[in-house]
Design a protein around this nucleic acid. Sequence first.
RNA 1: GACCCCAUCGUCUAGUCAGGCCUAGGACACUGGGUUUUCAUCCCAGCAACACGGGUUCGAAUCCCGUUGGGGUCACCA
Length: 526
Amino acid sequence: MEVRVRFAPSPTGQIHIGNIRTAIFNWLYARHHNGTFLVRVEDTDRERSTQEAIDILFAELKWLDIDYDENLLYQSEQIKRHLTHAETMLANNHAYRHAKGEGGEAVLFSIPWDDAGFNTIRNCGQTELPIHTEEPVKISKHGVKFALISRKGKPVPTEVCLAGFKNLKIYDANNQCLFDIKDAIESILDKSKACEIQNGQRLSFTRREVYFKDLIKGELSKPLDSMKDFVIVRGDGSPVFHLANVSDDIEQNITHIIRGDDHIENTYRHTLLFQAINSNIPNFAHIPMIINQQGKPYSKRDGDAFLSELRDAGYLPEAVFNYLTLLGWSPGDDSEKMGRDELVSRFNFERVQRSAAQMDLKKLANLNGQYMAEIPQEVFLQQANEIISSLPWGKNIDSSYLSEVAVLMQSRTKTFNQIEDWAYFFTENLTFDESMVEKQLRKPGIKKAFVDLHEQLLTLEFDLVKIESCILFITESNGIKVGKLNLPLRIALTGSKIGAGIFEIIFVLGKDTVIKRLNYAIDNLV
RNA sequence: GACCCCAUCGUCUAGUCAGGCCUAGGACACUGGGUUUUCAUCCCAGCAACACGGGUUCGAAUCCCGUUGGGGUCACCA
């Protein structure tokens, strides 16, 4: 069977990482099966959908190199067909018009009383439900209203669909049958007659449930007596998500619906909709959510929840793509760093996790570092150049000097935004960590060593080997243990305790700069 | 509240469907050591988990029941 999947985001702002992972899983599945990956823009929420958001969406897809097939489908242009499908259901008696609350007469989908034509509904036995005696039971084609009993014995008003109560009988406290639906069903259904029964104490009915087999979670089911008929066309004549979504999936011949597991409840309803429109039901795969550091769903305050933030933080698209596939999926062995082709060939639903996953930025950074290390030198240089020229200290930089710095720093750069930390190569505006200065510079012997070094450097021929032996000489002649002058020197010259090798740094900075900074340190720091 | 779903190191996960190969493996992070006379890298070692309680079984992370915890959904939003 040909595989046809779709990514169907609502363009209402930034792209969330959970969202883009859904796109990735869809894309991977399609490519794995040589199938078709479609993008559908679900822009029916005219209030919140914006062109800007649509532009962001495609920019992000492009950044991650996720290509799509065939033409885009804009949901807002499909309204006519959506409404035709609503008409079909109205004609089949699978939907009815009803003024439910304000907003005029809407079209509601009727959870089917009659299973004919519905393969995803099954009986699951006789059930009893205790109800609050003081509240009447109201039965109409629009649903059944009654009151459950809270733990404290209070009535809890409930309204669910009629279809949940096949073979309903209502008994009072004396076990007397007050109502049998088989006597009333015809007039309820055909003449829209409503019944009201007082003093009921329990409901007795055949429970039915809607079920489907999820490719990730296995068989999922939900009793009809916990569902309600739902609006598919608003009072103003516009289609609701459920209708539009299903109608478009039919139109696009979608074979596998891969979406977040927050849609599971919708899927119970959607399977019914597919059948009411006389269409085949696609396969479903519900992937788990991504949650924040606190283990909660991401909210606006969390940060790093948008793909753009990851990009702005300097992560590579390859690394982000790779990392996101590993959130909620694993290849089954210990492979982690995997390229596109390998991911495409290994991806499957069997190995998708059933529970939510947390982002671990440190792991992403580590993976990103592995990708960074593989970037060819000239590509790295070009990227670095772009980033540096956008930084405040990055104007008018000598390109051969930049090249020297970049070569030196590539192996210790895990994300491109760390290039900001290269400032000490380009500006005399160093920032010193006071506690590091105190700890490393203001200790006995350092000042004298610096002064000696300063004097030596003035006349030193400036190459790597000579710099190294000069520093070694100063270290030893000052009675400092080998290597122990390096960190103080690093702090004095760069302000930082980490970075490239100190001898290389000194060489790249050049004699004038080093002497200038050493002077400053001798006068102000040590 | 009702319904649905989920549950292995701090985190991502392997092992669960087909019970024994699990003294529960890997990765990130963390800690210690080594290499680099410095930083990063790299190498080695360590720390660290089957949510809890019952059952079935010769044997349970794995199967069953219950409990707890977490999440989702209950809109004329998508």
